[in-house]
């Protein structure tokens, strides 16, 4: 089941940007931060399912485009005062390739 699958070259995700991957049960957003780490979250904001992949990335957070909730990329949790959480997927980057565990 939970295999590592290759999804992209690191360079295909813009720094401080994101890309999406369609999987069976929805969309996963991959984010690349300024320190070149990659994080993956379900592409749905805990607030009203806004597409997080379309938000602005800063530090290790992304700001949802719909109502500006800030979501922590590592934990998938909304930053206070908002509350809620979206799924986090494991990602690794090896020699410039990005792998997703699904």
């Amino acid at each position: 089941m939970n295999d590592w699958k290759e999804v992209a070259n690191l360079e295909e995700i813009p720094r401080l940007g994101s890309r999406v991957v369609e999987v069976e049960d929805g969309t996963i957003a991959l984010f690349r931060t300024s320190d070149d780490q990659v994080f993956a979250l379900r592409d749905a904001c805990p607030h009203k399912q806004g597409p997080l992949s379309q938000g602005i990335v800063a530090g290790h957070t992304v700001t949802c485009p719909l109502h500006n909730w800030k979501i922590d990329l590592e934990s998938g949790e909304a930053l206070a005062p908002d509350e809620g959480c979206t799924n986090v997927y494991s990602v690794k980057v090896e020699s410039g390739r990005v792998y997703l565990q699904i």
Binding site: D3, K5, V7, E12, P14, V20, E22, L30
Partner: peptide, 11 residues
């Protein structure tokens, strides 16, 4: 173009 195209999974 990357802005508009989803990534694909490969095994």
């Amino acid at each position: 173009a990357h802005e508009f195209r989803p990534l694909k999974l490969s095994a």
